[in-house]
């Protein structure tokens, strides 16, 4: 499935980028003569018919050759790969933050359903869901960097630098995790096997982690898996706000500059990340739900 997805992604990127105008003009000035432009076009390979360009592009993509950045003069894939770990680091931290915040919030509002705790948790979740990433980011900078001077507003390198961007990106995601946790925990708690668990004398805490969470996890993991692309999407904003040296922010600039090779390489790597994550989620699934694990072997 992953190769197929990647070809699809590459195709869409290729044609959509071609729709945005002739890239040759980026390299020319108003004084350039038509001959110069033509020479440049030939040099860069933009003179060939579109299908030929497409085939060549695909063949190169297989060996991760997306060409040289039109702006930096370096292989695009190198530029992207150099920034990729930073994005990955941010995304993983944000995911951990969102689970660390979202799951307890969801669990509390499910377990204390209808009480003031439920209202508090649900309200915060609603705000988290509604607040735009850039607003949360700016507010956090305002409070923790400008007022309290506790954490750096931009840059990277230390754990301190990681905190604000992770929370910014994670907060948006945490709301989603909290909402789905609440719903699925409530649903599982209605099940008869929860009564059975209590009837054999299971303590409440054990009921929660062994019976409720283990079953609710299936839905929660699904939602987290489905949301990975929007996490990467949110990274664009978080990276821009905090000047985080990752792929997402870098690609936004590449799009403005119509730096095709970089955009293509960037999208390729990000889509690949998403596809691999989905695979991981699927594998995780089989671990969580025995019916999927054994379904194909037995029956």
């Amino acid at each position: 499935m992953i190769p197929l997805t990647m070809v699809g992604v590459l195709t869409i990127v290729f044609f959509v980028l071609r729709l945005s105008g002739d890239p040759v003009y980026l390299f020319t000035t108003q004084e350039s003569t038509p001959e110069e432009i033509e020479m440049l076009r030939e040099e860069l390979g933009f003179n060939k018919p579109l299908p030929i360009q497409y085939i060549r592009y695909l063949r190169r993509a297989v060996v991760l050759d997306f060409g040289t950045s039109l702006r930096y003069g370096e292989p695009a894939i190198n530029l992207i790969l150099a920034r990729w770990p930073a994005t990955l680091q941010l995304a993983v931290c944000a995911l951990l933050v969102s689970i660390a915040i979202g799951l307890p919030f969801g669990a509390i509002s499910a377990l204390k359903r209808g009480t003031i705790w439920d209202t508090i948790c649900s309200t915060i979740t609603l705000i988290g869901q509604g607040a735009p990433v850039f607003w949360i980011g700016i507010m956090l900078i305002l409070i923790f960097s400008v007022r309290l001077r506790l954490l750096p507003a931009t840059g990277s390198g230390t754990l301190k630098h990681l905190i604000l961007p992770s929370i910014t990106l994670g907060a948006f995601f945490a709301a989603r995790v909290a909402r789905i946790s609440r719903t699925s925990i409530l649903e599982v708690m209605q099940k008869k096997y929860i009564v059975t668990a209590r009837a054999i004398g299971t303590k409440e805490l054990r009921v929660l982690y062994l019976h409720v969470l283990k079953n609710a996890a299936i839905a929660i993991v699904t939602i987290i898996g489905l949301s990975i692309p929007s996490l990467i999407g949110g990274a664009v904003m978080a990276e821009s706000i905090f000047n985080w040296p990752g792929v997402a922010g870098f690609m936004v600039n590449a799009v403005y500059n119509r730096d095709y090779p970089v955009v293509q390489a960037g999208i390729f790597i990000l889509s690949f990340t998403v596809a691999v994550t989905n695979l991981v989620v699927d594998v995780l699934y089989t671990y969580l739900d025995p019916q999927i694990r054994l379904g194909s072997q037995k029956v």
Partner: peptide, 21 residues
């Protein structure tokens, strides 16, 4: 007391066992 001194068997065996254990 539950499960050790007093035990219950429920009506619906299809739904009374935890599906993931």
């Amino acid at each position: 007391i539950r499960g050790s001194k007093i035990s219950i068997i429920f009506q619906d065996p299809m739904a009374s066992l935890n599906p993931v254990l």
